[in-house]
Structure formats: structure tokens, C-alpha cells
Design a protein around this nucleic acid. Structure first.
Lengths: 343, 343
DNA sequence: ATTGGCACTCGCCCACCCGGAGTGCCACCG
DNA sequence: CGGTGGCACTCCGGGTGGGCGAGTGCCAAT
């Protein structure tokens, strides 16, 4: 008995099931794929695949459906990558290049990916922690309030206001100006990891009356760069869930929508997937480790950095999604997104 | 025949239907409400109400269901306002007051409203156009790029970057500083409507070499205050659509989700509703003028201004929603949101 | 105007049945 | 020993038909 053929059979089952959304039987398989053997042989192979946990039959006397494990084997060893056509590539690039600022780039990327995959797209904002700082700005708002603006080399702008009424009741224009200059000297062009120590030493250079102020500002900068670092997510295409695959979810898609609204869940998942070795990472069904997502798969890719990615972009769809196509789309958008951000 | 009783009947039908989600018949009505007449009489009234277009029966020999028109009459003349309990009020206020900045306030408000109504909540960011300016900041980013930061008295911060390479290749520190001071003198504490003329005159006070720069900056400020003025929307609770009322929508909830993703649609609607006289405005079914929303109703209220509202907050749910409850929740959250923003 | 009564209409539910797709197994073959 | 044709069996899905019950409209009586 040939192991190769069994894998061919699994591949055929996945491919057919993705298209028809119906359990696929042995006869249909030999008709639609040139496997060179009879349906009886396929039946034997199917029994073996079921034994191995790669497929199941919903009821006796029904065709087979891939399991999570079956999909996993499919994406790991069987999927043939689809290349994007040149016109598609050009369209993606052109669409992203037209963006006017970071918000616009992210917005365009997420809509584009939702459109390409006909699923739900997710884009994580470029990490502040891994970005380099371009500029720090302090603005005295009056009423003892100081605005801290942080600008990164990816174009991301983050702001925080700081209430100084208990710390520095009298805020002198000169102190602010001096602090602004020194902060920028220390911080510009560096990443957070290279920043903690120098920032900590900064306060020592100021007169004792101002040290509380300096420490407060430094603390806000550090907090913003760490706490909020992975926080922002943008979604698009939730309507695709209802449109294409209302029946892909056994009950309703309520739990899925809930999971998507809980950004914490997605952020944790994205974090886990960043640790995966490959550039494109796939989580199938239970591998998402979240109740609401057991009937979905999540394909993500890092973007924005040569060595370690700045953040991730991904697509969420039903278990029976077009894995090769989704992987190709996610990879392509990630690639061009990186290019646009670098340029 | 008493017109009053007919209205009572309509009210009873709406109230029952909202709870049971099933067509309500004459017998059930007299049992559950003390109308003091027999079911036969109710049947006559129902026939008249159907004649008037307020109710319909899905099939012959079924109970009656309110029409859009029936709901409209209900909210206009029949709904008895539910007062929020004091503990509820206190909880709302406390929850909103804990917010740390504008983004947080808006985020909390939208989640809170989604939770209270068990529907989809929408919050529009405070209008830039109607806000007063607190501060304008210019930051030289190098590489011929200038960052313009606009801060309003509601705490909203908006930023734009400006490419000056074609306008002012050599950007002097002094020019920027001078422009910053003058911009703030002119703009601080004013609203856009009071701002267009003075901003336009600003360039005249600069040497001719800098006028192009000044005009570019002024233009960006004006664009940001107008174009983007109503742009930002935040949603929450889309999962509630699937949870509570999967069967409230004849086909799927796909079209509804699509409409919600098209923020343009919601923005137009919010704009229209701002023109409505009352503080709380209700759109029922077709009144939304959007195909995807024909099976939903939209309850909104302005917030944040004594005379003209800064922006709107609202809740979207199925046609058969609890109108009095939703109206009460929307009004309450709007009120406390206004209070928090003003304080 | 209101009411009790009554004939009538349908939608819903359930039970039943049949066809067809698909399986597992077995005996047979190269 | 793997592959194949054949066959009995299972069981889902869909279609049919009948009874029930909720609800209506109408009418004659009060």
C-alpha cells in the first residue's frame, strides 16, 4: 500500500471539500481526480486516513470530512503554493502606495486583505517597542497639563496627556524646552530596548526642583512604549463571515464575533504566532486555544522588519478555507506593506 | 368605537411581540392585558389597525405583527419612558469617570451602551469643527516633513504630516517657531467657524519667502477641521446581533454587518438624525434609507454640547427591539458622556 | 358598540416512507 | 499482497399526508 497515494487522497478530499462544502465520497473522488485506482481502493485508503485521525465521517454512510489534523497535514506537506499574478501584485502595490499616512496604509491594507481572501482581515499596528523613535515632542497645554507626543520611524504617532498639578505646579517654559531638547538628543533614532537606561539617567542632569517632572515624563514615555506597544488592532470584512459561510459554523457565528471583538484574544494569538518559526503561520481550529474560534483558522504573517517583524497581519476564516490562496494573499499583502512602510 | 382603545391594543401588540417574537393573536392579548373587552372586540380593532397599516398578519389565520408604521406610532405616542434606577445611573457615571483620556472615554461609552442595550452601539468622536481649539503644535520631523498636531478642548488630538520638499526646501527653526506662536495666538479658544478668516489673513504678516509655507500649514489645519470633522466612529457589540436575534433577520445578518462596516452609511444617517428636532432621534426600518438596515432600527442622541451637540451616540438593533429601554439607555449614556467631557 | 358563537383557513408538527449515496467487507485476481 | 468488482447494509434527506390548534372573519343577538 502506497503512503504517497494516501496523501494524494487526503489532498483531494481537502480540495474537494473546500469547494463543495459537502462530505466527499470515494466515487466522487475517483471521478474528479485522476488517481488511477478504483473507488474500492480509495475506500481502503480512507479507512486508514480515518484511523490516523485525518478525516471523519459525519454519519455512517456519509462521505468524509477533514479533521483539524487533516488540514494541518495538508498545509504542512500537501498545499501547493499559489503564486499571485503580476497584475494582482501591481494592483496591491499601487493601492497601498496611494495611502497618505500610516492610518491610511493600515486601513487600506486591512480592507485589501479582507477583499482578497473574502474573510476577516486583521492588521496589528507597527509595534512601538520595536520601532525606532523619530521625535519626542512636549506641549504645555496649560492648566498643569503636559502633552507628550511620540513619533516613530514607521510614522506612528502616539500621544498622552500628563497631569502635573501635584508634581510641578509651576511649569516654566524654559524647563519644558530644555527637557524637550535633551529627550530628543537621548532618544532620537533609538529603540526602546536601547532606551531604558539612558532615559533613567536623564533626571540626574536636572536641578532637584525639576527632577519630579522629568521622572514623570520619562515614565509616561516608557509606559507608552511598553504597555501600549501591541495594543492597536484593525479589523475588516466581518460581513464576509456571514456572507460566504453562514453554514460553516454549527450554531451561529455569535461566538466568533465575540472573539473578534475581544481584541485581547487576537493579540495573544498574534503574539504566540510571532514565535512560530516560519514567516507565515497558520493556526487551525483548536490550535487557536479559544472556544469561540474552534471552527476557524487563522493565517498570519509578520511584516515591517528584516530580522524581527514589527507587527502581524492576518486573515481569519472557516476551517474549510482556501489555505493556499489565503496564505498567498496574506504573504503578498505583508510583503508590500513592509515595502511601503520602509519607503 | 374608541380610538383610545385601539391605541392601547397597538401598544399591547408591540409590547407582546417584542417579548415573544411571535405574531400575537386576539385571545392572547385579552389574557395578558386587562383591556376590559372580549377577544371579538379586539379582533375588530385589529382589523381597523391593519386597515390603517399599523399591523399585518404574516399569513391568513396567524396573529398580527407591527409594521414600521406601527412601531413609529408606538415610539411617537405610546411608549412610556423607563427611568433608569439610581444605582444604574451611578454605575454609568462611575464607569465613564474612570477613563484616562478621550479614546478611553469613547471606548468605555460604546462598550457600556452595547452592554446596556444588548445591541450594537455606535459612538461618533466629538466633532472637530464644533470644538474649540486648545492648542496647535508644529514639529519639524526633518526630511522636509512637518507634523501638525491639533488639540481640542474635548481632548481630541489629531495629527497630519505635511511634505514641504516642493514648498519650502529650507525650513528654518525660527520660521517654524514664529508660525507656531502666531497660529496659537490666532486660533486658541476659537471654533472653526470663527477661524477661517483670521487664518486666511495670517500669511500676509510673513515675508514673501515664507508665505507658501504658511499657506500650506493653514490649509492642512482647515482641511483637518472640515473634511475629517465627522469621520471617526467606534462600534461595539456586533456579536449581540448574532446572539440575541439571529432569527430577527429574514436571510442572514450579512447585509447588516456590511452596512455597519460601511461607516459612510452610518455617518450619513447620524448627520440626518442630527437635524431631527428632539434630542433623541429614532429611525425605524426603511426610514434608515439603506437596504441593509431595513430590518433594523437606530436610536441616537446628541451629546457634548448645550446648544448644538458635538457628536452623536446611538444603538442599532432589530425592528422589534425594546424601544423605551433603548431610548432610556442611549439618553443616559449621552448625558453622562457629556458630563464627563465637560468636567 | 360589544359579544358569544361558529365555520373556516392555514401553518406547524409528526410520523412515515422511499431513494440514493456511501460504506465495509469479502472473494477473487494479477 | 495490493487492487478490484460486487453486494448487503446503513442512514440522511426530502417528500407526503394527516391531525391539531391557534387565529380569523362574520353574524346574529344584546
Amino acid at each position: 500500500m502506497s503512503d504517497d497515494r494516501r496523501l494524494d487522497v487526503l489532498r483531494a478530499i481537502v480540495e474537494d471539500y473546500v469547494v463543495t462544502r459537502e462530505p466527499v465520497g470515494s466515487r466522487a473522488l475517483v471521478e474528479r481526480h485522476s488517481l488511477g485506482v478504483s473507488s474500492a481502493t480509495i475506500r481502503n485508503d480512507m479507512a486508514a486516513l480515518e484511523e490516523g485521525g485525518y478525516i471523519v465521517q459525519p454519519h455512517t454512510s456519509a462521505g468524509r470530512v477533514p479533521t483539524d489534523r487533516g488540514y494541518r497535514l495538508f498545509v504542512d506537506r500537501l498545499a501547493t503554493v499559489k503564486a499571485m499574478s503580476s497584475p494582482e501584485k501591481r494592483a496591491i502595490q499601487a493601492f497601498l502606495e496611494d495611502a497618505v499616512d500610516l492610518d491610511d496604509v493600515v486601513d487600506r491594507a486591512v480592507r485589501l486583505l479582507a477583499q482578497l481572501t473574502q474573510q476577516v482581515a486583521v492588521v496589528q499596528y507597527p509595534s512601538l517597542r520595536r520601532s525606532a523613535l523619530r521625535h519626542l515632542e512636549l506641549v504645555d497645554l496649560g492648566e498643569h497639563r503636559l502633552l507628550v507626543v511620540i513619533i516613530t520611524d514607521t510614522g506612528r504617532v502616539e500621544q498622552r496627556t500628563l497631569d502635573l498639578s501635584t508634581i510641578a505646579p509651576a511649569l516654566s517654559e524654559e524647563t519644558v524646552a530644555l527637557l524637550r531638547v535633551r529627550l530628543n538628543v537621548v532618544a532620537t533614532g533609538r529603540r526602546l530596548s536601547e532606551l531604558v537606561v539612558p532615559l533613567g539617567e536623564l533626571a540626574d542632569a536636572f536641578p532637584s526642583t525639576d527632577q519630579a517632572l522629568v521622572r514623570a515624563v520619562v515614565q509616561v514615555v516608557e509606559e507608552t512604549l511598553t504597555e501600549e506597544s501591541e495594543e492597536r488592532l484593525v479589523l475588516a470584512g466581518t460581513a464576509n463571515l456571514a456572507r460566504t459561510g453562514a453554514h460553516d459554523f454549527t450554531h451561529t457565528l455569535g461566538p466568533v464575533l465575540e472573539a473578534l471583538e475581544e481584541q485581547v484574544v487576537l493579540l495573544r494569538l498574534l503574539g504566540e504566532m510571532a514565535d512560530d518559526a516560519a514567516s507565515v503561520s497558520v493556526r487551525i481550529g483548536r490550535e487557536t486555544h479559544h472556544e469561540g474560534l474552534v471552527e476557524t483558522s487563522f493565517v498570519t504573517s509578520g511584516y515591517g522588519g528584516e530580522d524581527a517583524a514589527l507587527a502581524r497581519i492576518g486573515s481569519i476564516g472557516p476551517l474549510r478555507m482556501d489555505y493556499p490562496g489565503t496564505i498567498a494573499s496574506v504573504r503578498a499583502v505583508a510583503r508590500y506593506l513592509s515595502r511601503v512602510l520602509a519607503g
